[in-house]
Nucleic acid binder design. Structure first.
Length: 192
DNA sequence: ATGATGATCTACT
DNA sequence: GTAGATCATCATC
């Protein structure tokens, strides 16, 4: 198993979203390493995707990294929770893949400590949950995903991939119905 | 019914 | 520009 090279991210966002399923997300910290398999993602295709922060090429300090080359981390702080994205699309194309859920793999003790001893199932089945579980914070913003301490490794190929509408963007007009959410079929760690 | 989560919103370092 | 908060929705008791 090896760290995915920068070239891996040079594919269409929707393809990347599916490719990331089954890959291993790893975060190293001073107190230990925690990782998990990515089991759920959402694609956000900048211009034209009303639900995306980069809709209509809206460029702000926050979305700035999305305009750069793919393979970088885009962290977003919301309600004291942190969400993680993988930047995709070429330079000038503000697209990204939101990681919504992972399956705990390494550092279970560390994850449980961070999450506060919840049921295993509830440890990482949500965008805000997995970041806290793996110790990903806003200062990871702009970090290349092919280097320590935060990176993605080759995982396994999911047998079945499901596809459906995205979640939590009810006020985004037509974009609400875009079937751009992908998850590993019948994996119990998906958010829903 | 209660608790937790979540692609925002507002205020001020 | 950054840091911190509020309220609707989903999940579970």
């Amino acid at each position: 198993m090896s760290i995915l090279p920068a070239e891996f991210y040079e594919q269409p966002t929707l393809e990347l979203a599916k490719s990331l399923l089954g890959c291993k997300l790893v975060k190293e910290t001073e107190i230990g390493t925690a990782s998990g398999y990515i089991v759920e993602t959402e694609a956000y295709v900048g211009p034209g995707d009303r639900a995306a922060h980069s809709f209509n090429n809206k460029r702000t300090p926050r979305t700035e990294v999305m305009f750069g080359p793919p393979g970088y981390v885009y962290t977003y702080v919301m309600h004291t929770h942190c969400l993680v994205n993988v930047v995709s699309g070429e330079v000038g194309h503000p697209e990204a893949v939101l990681i919504r859920a992972v399956e705990p793999l390494e550092g279970i003790e560390l994850i449980q400590e961070r999450r506060g001893d919840k049921k295993e199932k509830d440890l990482t089945n949500g965008p805000g949950k997995l970041t806290k579980a793996l110790g990903i914070i806003k200062s990871d913003y702009g970090h290349p995903l092919d280097q320590s301490p935060l990176y993605i490794k080759n995982g396994y190929s999911p047998k079945h991939i499901s596809q459906g509408k995205r979640i939590g963007i009810d006020n985004s007009g037509e974009a609400r119905d875009y079937p751009w959410r992908f998850w590993i079929t019948e994996n119990r760690f998906v958010s829903r």
